[in-house]
Amino acid sequence: METYPKTHLLIRGTEINYLFICPTKLWYFSKGITMEQESEYVDLGKFLHEQSYFGEEKNIKIGPISIDFIKRGDIIEVHEVKKGKSMEKAHEMQALYYIYYLKKLGIRARAILNYPKLRETKEITLEGREKEVEDSIREIERIKSLPVPPKPVKTKKCKKCAYYELCWV
């Protein structure tokens, strides 16, 4: 198995998520340009997170990652709360990264994606997917090292994006 520099343990879950949503957004975010505080969609997501899963300890921070909530048992259950499935690949990869990160710390874990509005959950395991996570880490590091943001690609997601004005106005 290839060894990786310790910088791969400095990747934030949001960066993994943004890689699969928009590399341009990832670049801006990685440079400290955050627009989410202005977004009504982000506010809606935060509200949903706060109003769901009462009794759970929320926003668990471990190094650079921030997990929505954890359930302890023989295997740690990492839970991520999401509004809907339109960006399910990004959600899945973020959850995979969390359990990959924990594995590097010697902690066995699995992840559960929670979609409270849909009343659905999806279990995520790392088995057979470590290379996919490691490839994503390498791509994030490549994008973050660029001197300028990658050229944006206009999609349906752009209209709801907090970074819309940076890319398209």
Rank of each mutant, 00 (worst) to 15 (best):
T3Q: 08
Y4L: 13
H8G: 01
H8I: 10
R12G: 09
T14I: 08
Y18C: 06
K25L: 07
F29T: 03
G32L: 08
T34A: 04
T34G: 08
E36Y: 11
E38F: 13
S39P: 11
D43T: 00
L48P: 00
L48E: 07
Q51K: 11
S52L: 06
G55Q: 00
G55T: 10
G55D: 08
E56P: 00
N59C: 03
I62A: 02
P64E: 00
I65Y: 06
I65W: 03
S66C: 14
I67L: 09
I67A: 12
F69D: 01
I70Q: 06
E77N: 07
E77S: 12
V78W: 03
H79Q: 02
V81S: 05
S86A: 05
M87V: 15
E88W: 01
H91E: 09
E92S: 13
M93L: 10
Y97W: 09
Y98V: 05
Y98A: 11
L102Y: 06
K103E: 15
R110S: 08
R110G: 10
I112S: 11
L113H: 04
K117V: 10
E120K: 15
E123F: 14
I124E: 05
L126C: 11
E130M: 09
E132W: 00
E134K: 00
E134F: 12
E134D: 09
D135I: 04
I137Y: 03
I137D: 01
R138F: 14
R138N: 14
I140G: 01
R142H: 10
R142E: 13
L146M: 15
P147D: 09
P147V: 05
V148F: 00
P149A: 11
K151L: 09
P152K: 11
V153P: 04
T155D: 11
K157W: 08
C158R: 06
K159V: 14
K160F: 15
Y163A: 04
L166G: 01
V169P: 08
V169D: 13
